[in-house]
């Protein structure tokens, strides 16, 4: 049985032989593999409903095939370009602010000497992640209300007119991004802080000998050491570029801000799950598939660029 722990297969052994030698390990892999096939891969076949007039009662086999009707319906909708524009802008601003802030935060926290303080700050920054969007948006409504909200009271005291933040289309994107930053920065910073723990202390010692101050050590030691993690996280973030937080948007949604808040997901939600009529699962699946394909292409491109210009890549 010693071969199980320490495989002693010779280079000339065939694949099957090597597999047989490691049979116990493959057996351990089996439940995970079954789970992956049953719950991750097989459901992918459900995507065919994007090409059907799917009826939940008839099922996939008996529903009518309609080709790319749902795709052309979406792309020919008069709101298509407005939706794409709103979605991309929201995703762009989200990426611009939500992605780098946890890195900056992690770099700063890493510099805290007292470990008790470090842990306290880390824990505190982590809390917002566990607050539900419903609670956060409710708080936002209260704080920003033009009628007695804290922010407007302060503005009034400073001699400014009240601003109707939640009803101003121009404020939607900044508020959405700010909420995301606040909610996610502590959580997202964990991965970078974990990467920093694996940095060789000798590098800092060498930097000290070279006379580097703390800022220079951050720039020349810490940041390059975690760059591969940053690149991988960035590629993953690009894959999520068309994914917006629908819960948050629907909670912030009102007729005054449709101009900027109406994104692909909110459009699909009201088209596919309108209160009257039958849920249009096929349409939802078609738009979802389109988004996934675009996201896949973006990830591949980012991976390729990363492969070309740096050591890091996703796969």
């Amino acid at each position: 049985m010693s071969s199980i722990v320490k495989p002693t297969t010779s280079k000339n052994s065939g694949l099957l032989k090597r597999m047989w030698d490691a049979k116990i390990l493959y057996l351990i892999l089996l439940p995970g593999l079954i789970h992956l096939i049953l719950f991750k891969l097989l459901p992918l076949f459900g995507l065919v409903i994007a090409f059907q007039d799917y009826s939940i009662f008839k099922g996939i086999l008996d529903s009518k095939w309609i080709g790319i009707e749902h795709f052309s319906k979406f792309m020919s909708d008069p709101y298509f370009w407005k939706l794409v524009r709103n979605t991309l802008l929201l995703a762009f601003f989200n990426l611009l602010f939500v992605f780098p802030i946890p890195i900056i935060f992690a770099l700063f926290v890493n510099e805290v000497r007292l470990s008790a303080v470090k842990r306290f700050v880390q824990t505190l920054s982590f809390f917002p992640y566990f607050i539900s969007s419903a609670v956060i948006v409710s708080i936002l409504y209260k704080v920003l209300s033009p009628q007695g909200g804290l922010v407007n009271q302060m503005l009034n005291l400073a001699g400014f007119e009240s601003v109707f933040f939640m009803a101003d289309p121009g404020w939607f994107r900044p508020l959405y991004v700010m909420l995301n930053v606040w909610q996610l920065f502590g959580y997202s910073a964990i991965i970078y802080m974990a990467a920093m723990t694996s940095i060789d202390p000798h590098l800092y010692e060498a930097a000290d000998i070279d006379g580097a101050n703390r800022f220079k050590k951050i720039i020349n030691v810490t940041l390059p050491s975690i760059s591969s993690t940053i690149v991988v996280m960035f590629i993953l973030a690009i894959g999520q570029i068309l994914t917006v937080d629908l819960d948050k948007i629907l909670l912030m949604y009102n007729p005054s801000i449709y101009d900027t808040a109406d994104v692909i997901q909110s459009y699909v939600y009201r088209q596919a799950f309108a209160s009257d009529g039958f849920p249009n699962y096929s349409f939802g699946a078609a738009v979802g598939l389109m988004q996934s394909v675009i996201a896949f292409v973006l990830v591949m491109m980012a991976n390729k660029v990363s492969k070309k210009y740096s050591e890091s890549r996703l796969f």
Binding site: Y141, S145, F164, A167
Partner: peptide, 9 residues
């Protein structure tokens, strides 16, 4: 105005 804007709860 909150009622008109749709932000009233």
């Amino acid at each position: 105005p909150e009622w008109v804007a749709g932000t009233a709860t």
